[in-house]
Design a binder for these strands. Sequence first.
DNA 1: CTGCATCTAGTCGCAATGCAACTAGTCTCG
DNA 2: CGAGACTAGTTGCATTGCGACTAGATGCAG
Lengths: 208, 208
Amino acid sequence: MTAPVKSSPLALTVLALLHYKPLHPYGIQQLIKQWGKEQVVNVGQRAGLYRTIERLHAGGLIAVRQTERDQQYPERTVYEVTDEGRAVAREWLDQMLAVPKGEFPVFPAALSNVPMLTPAEALDVLERRAERLAARRADLASQLAVHTEEGVPRVTLIEHEYLLAMVDAEERWVRAVTADLHDGRLAWSPEMLAAFDEQHNSGAPSGG
Amino acid sequence: MTAPVKSSPLALTVLALLHYKPLHPYGIQQLIKQWGKEQVVNVGQRAGLYRTIERLHAGGLIAVRQTERDQQYPERTVYEVTDEGRAVAREWLDQMLAVPKGEFPVFPAALSNVPMLTPAEALDVLERRAERLAARRADLASQLAVHTEEGVPRVTLIEHEYLLAMVDAEERWVRAVTADLHDGRLAWSPEMLAAFDEQHNSGAPSGG
DNA sequence: CTGCATCTAGTCGCAATGCAACTAGTCTCG
DNA sequence: CGAGACTAGTTGCATTGCGACTAGATGCAG
């Protein structure tokens, strides 16, 4: 038995689309974009898509159905999902939905080094973030509104609802922090951090 | 001039810790754990840490200060941050704080394939997620409480506040969705999705 | 006191990912 | 006809995640 194929957002999406009907790689990419999933699956550079398909193929989760040839287009390999692929997709989906995965986004890591800045500098960069978040929030909200008006079933927009909720929450949090920075409820100085470090006699994460 | 070093959570943290005082790799790892930053920087497997340090060294952002030798321990190389390293750390920090980066966490990608499940199945897995999120939330909240009681300055806990806010927001969102699933405000069926697909005459992301 | 497990510190290798460059054919428009 | 842009797929490189491995130190059980 070959090593089990590792799950990934893209791999799951490929299986899901093939589950619906056989497709060639480029067709998959088209569908992903058409359905606005590029916002959650990173199919921007095709390399990842082709490699993922290869991996799924090698693992027996998808199979070649046919090899078309429209003259004018290069040879197109059409894939279909296998029974094992269907089963695996189900397992992946259950796992990914039920178990929050410990990921390491950059923002919290950056936040943990905020003491390197002065409160005024922190206020400035966080305000800039808040503005960008607001723009993204507005964008997501308008996409949702458009699709909803068009009668798209809510369940197919559920990931957009989620993204919107998260962006909204982050923006609120950032604005709360900038407010605290603005009127001094959150403040620090090198001296204060150094004094605290001394009490605890070991290296500290503050910027000296 | 060598290629500019790519930023990463770990690289930033290493520069920040060395900014405070020179250290050897293992000491850096100790500090990261001691300050609870393993939750935001992924220093679990040491390979990443050593490779990051090598990369920073090659890029001239850190330099070897000395090579200690406690008998009993292997040779320890102590690094210190260079002036360029300080400057770069500042730039990275500004960038990472001000600009939300488009990352691709697995949960939203999984969500986008929820139509493959029945509403009842979706309810089940999402309830399991909500429970795990609640556990994590409680854990983060208690860590925060402990540190706050000990008089740790708030700014050094800011990334924990953020994580807590995000986990809390996600849990609320998931519970709102499970509530909607529970009493039918969110529902679907293969027929309904198929009907919708037909109107739009192209492949669909629903599970057929 | 000898063998076995465990901790500390660091290294190695591999699969996966992100990103950019490159190929090669096709279409468009002047 | 030729320049540039689009389509479709490939290649390479640096980075990351993750697990396995080394090798000395320590501890503790028989």
